[in-house]
């Protein structure tokens, strides 16, 4: 058998590795690190679109602390994330458990459940949401069938956040797919052995399934928390942040300050606070999980 000789076109030298990853490094420096540093510097300037940036130190951060608008946006964002993330994880996991069953036509169901997550908050979805949640919408008609009084989904500041949450909840496909992949990796023998030992479905779920996928749960928790804290699209498209700013997230505040009010300096400062909030939230999650791991639970 003839062995073909392959020649290394670049040669294996001290810097070959660096050379091979240099496209990524260049892209990272240009499109991530440079804007990142710029954003921090601009956050300490008074920079309106028509003028040149003026260095003002931490003034933007001081303004933020006294800004009712910022406080409201931050509290809306935290509330939104606190409700959405656990709900989405539970719904995704339960659906993944169902879609893990070996039944006929399961491929169709897996595709069908994934489709909403590729739609995003586009115009068609916004119109659909209006048909669902306006005063005479389908949801209220459905509620009335059971004698329940209609809900003022769009107009009530206490209810409006839930139509955004329901929109994101409906798009659980990506989270569900990650769970499904993890569930399919659990060895069947564990369940078979548990069954022989007299374990029911619920006991198997808590004693086998959850421990086996806990790392995936953690990954999904981190990803969903970051995504929820950065929320912009859904409230911007569906409610415009209203009523009474009850769905006005920090993401929307940054966008408005930057593009609507042309306050680039302030917008960048708010971005850094959002970055800090996300970093703290994720850091806390790692801390708690790490402690639990060390305690062996």
């Amino acid at each position: 058998m003839k062995h073909r000789q392959y020649k290394n076109p670049v040669g294996v030298g001290k810097y070959t590795g660096l050379l091979l990853i240099s496209p990524f490094i260049a892209g990272f420096i240009l499109f991530t690190l440079y804007p990142f540093v710029c954003s921090f510097v601009l956050g300490m300037t008074d920079y309106r679109s028509a003028g040149t940036p003026k260095f003002i130190g931490l003034d933007n951060y001081k303004t933020m602390l006294s800004s009712e608008s910022f406080r409201k946006a931050l509290s809306v964002t935290l509330k939104y994330a606190a409700i959405l993330v656990p709900l989405k994880l539970i719904v995704s996991l339960l659906t993944a458990l169902l879609l893990n069953l070996e039944i006929k036509g399961i491929g169709f169901f897996r595709t069908a459940f994934y489709i909403p997550s590729i739609l995003g908050a586009n115009l068609a979805v916004v119109i659909m949401w209006q048909y669902l949640f306006t005063a005479d919408g389908l949801v209220n008609q459905f509620l009335e069938l059971f004698g329940a009084s209609p809900v003022s989904w769009y107009g009530d500041p206490d209810a409006s956040i839930y139509i955004i949450i329901m929109h994101r909840l409906w798009e659980f496909g990506s989270t569900m797919v990650i769970f499904l992949a993890a569930l399919r990796d659990i060895p069947r023998e564990l369940y078979d052995a548990a069954k022989v030992d007299g374990c029911g479905y619920i006991r198997s779920f808590f004693s086998i399934t959850l421990p086996q996928i806990k790392k995936v749960i953690f990954i999904n928790l981190i990803l969903q928390t970051i995504s929820a804290l950065q929320e912009f699209n859904a409230p911007y498209m569906i409610t415009g942040g209203g009523p009474l700013r009850s769905t006005y997230t920090v993401g929307m505040l940054i966008y408005d300050e930057m593009f609507k009010y042309s306050e680039a300096g302030y917008a960048n400062a708010v971005s850094w606070i959002l970055f800090a909030v996300i970093a703290i939230a994720v850091g806390l999650m790692y801390l708690v999980t790490g402690r639990r791991e060390r305690n062996g639970s």
């Binding site: 107009g155 569906i238 209203g242 009523p243």
Partner: peptide, 12 residues
Amino acid sequence: TIKTRTDEDGNA
């Protein structure tokens, strides 16, 4: 009212 309009039209 703003509430009525928002309830009836959403963000349209």
